[in-house]
Computed example of a mutant assay.
Amino acid sequence: MSRTIAAARGASVPAGETGEAGAVAGPAPGDTASPPGGAVPAPSRPRFGGAGAWAELLRLPALFTVPGDALAGAAAAGARPGPRTLLAIGSSLCLYEAGMALNDWADRAEDAVERPHRPLPSGRIRPAAALTAACGLTGAGLALAAGAGRPALAVAAPLAATVWAYDLALKHTPAGPAAMAAARGLDLLLGAAATGGTTRTALPSAALLGAHTLAVTAVSRRETGGGSALAPLAALATTGALTRLVTHRRTRPPAGRRAAAAPGLPGPGPAEHPHRAAGVLATALGAAYAATAARPYFHATLNPSPPLTQRAVGGGIRATVPLQAALAARSGAAATSLLVAALAPAGRMFARRAGMRKVSIT
C-alpha cells in the first residue's frame, strides 16, 4: 500500500545518477538536446501513458509482496484457499496499486522538486490519469471484495479508507507508520474474512505482520536523510521478537473450518495441522525472515547513512514474503506457506525478465 512504506524525501538527483533505491534518474523520454548554436527548441510533447511509465508508477515488482497477506490470513482462519481467496487477493492487488498511484498524485509537487524523474513530474503520466487510476482501482478492489462476501467487504472498506487517509493526510505525520501497519494487518484479515468468514483467529497473525510493517515504515522516515540509528535499532529488535514468535508460538487453526480449495491452490488439509512438517517450515522460514531483514538493519544501526538506511528499508520490504510464509506455516498450513515463499523468487524473476530491476519498490 502506497509504496509499501513511507519514503522520506531528499535532494533532487542529477540526470544520469542513481536515486530512489536504485531508480535511474535522467531526462524524460522525448526530451531533445539543444541544437548547434545554442538555440533552445520548444519542449517536445512527452509521450503519455507508456507501459514503462505505468510500471514505474505502480511499482509492479512490489506486487509479489501482496498475495501472501490473503494466503496467510486464510491459513490463520484454518481454511483452504478457495475461489473467495482469489477474489480477496485480487481486491488486495487493486487496493495496493490504488495506493501507489494515489501516492504519486499526492506527492507530485514535492517530486517535481526532489524527484523530477518520477512519471508524473517528468510528464510521462498526467496527474489526472494517475488520480483516475487510483479511483478506478479502489472501486475494483471493493467490488472484488464484495464478490467474496459481506465479511470480506466489511474489511476491505476500512482498508481502502486507510490507504486514502495515509496518502492524503497521514503520511508525513506521526500517525503515518501506524496507518501503514494497519493497512497491512487489514489486508491479512481480508484473506481470513473472505476464506473463513471470520477474522478473530487471524488477529494474532495480523498483529505480527503489522508490527513488521510499522518497523520498516519507521526506518523509511530517514531513507534519504539518514542520521538516526534509533529506528533501525528498534526494527532490529522487532525482527528478533517476531522471529521468536513465529517459530515458537504456532497456533492451531480452528477445527471444522474448511472451504473447498480452488484447483492448484494448496491449503491446510486435515493432515496438515501444526505437526512436525509445519514446525520445521515455520522455523526455516522464520530464519529466512530474520536473515533478510536483520543484517541491513544492523548495518544501518552502525552507520545510519542514507545508502545503508535505504538498504535497510529494501531488506525490510523483501522480508515481508518470508514472514507471510512463516505465519502460514505457524498456522499449520505447510503447503500454503511454500506457495507464499515461492512468491519471492517469482518476483525477482519477473523484474529481471521485464527489465525492471531498477524500478524502486519503495
Rank of each mutant, 00 (worst) to 15 (best):
F350Q: 04
L338V: 12
A334Y: 10
P296Q: 09
E56L: 13
Y289P: 12
G316M: 00
G316A: 00
A183C: 05
T336K: 02
P29S: 06
A160W: 01
T224A: 09
L58V: 05
A70T: 03
V113F: 10
Y96R: 14
R348T: 15
G286V: 00
E97A: 15
A334F: 08
R222H: 13
L168E: 12
H248V: 11
G123Y: 06
A354T: 09
A8W: 00
A291P: 04
L120W: 04
L137P: 09
T336I: 13
R357I: 12
A241E: 01
T199P: 15
P322E: 07
P177N: 13
P266L: 02
G139L: 07
A259H: 01
G38Y: 13
T4D: 15
S91C: 13
A28M: 07
T195A: 10
G16L: 06
P36V: 15
A28P: 12
G256Y: 03
E223H: 03
T65K: 04
E223K: 06
G279R: 06
G147W: 05
P158N: 11
A7S: 12
G50N: 07
A112V: 12
L159G: 12
A161C: 10
Y297T: 01
T85H: 02
V216S: 00
A290N: 01
L144W: 00
T162E: 05
A260K: 14
L245T: 08
P266H: 00
G99A: 03
E20W: 15
A328N: 14
I317R: 00
R80G: 08
T162R: 01
A241V: 10
G49A: 12
A333Q: 05
P29M: 10
L186Y: 09
P232F: 00
T65S: 04
A106Q: 08
L186S: 05
P254S: 11
A328D: 15
R352K: 06
A284G: 02
G22A: 01
L142E: 14
R352Q: 11
A194I: 00
L302D: 00
A241C: 03
A51Q: 13
S2H: 09
A291I: 01
G226L: 00
D167Q: 02
A329I: 12
A229N: 01
A329S: 11
A15E: 11
S228K: 01
R45W: 04
D107W: 06
C94V: 05
G16W: 03
G269N: 07
A152F: 09
G26W: 06
T162G: 11
V13Q: 13
R357K: 15
A130T: 12
A11P: 11
G314N: 11
G347D: 11
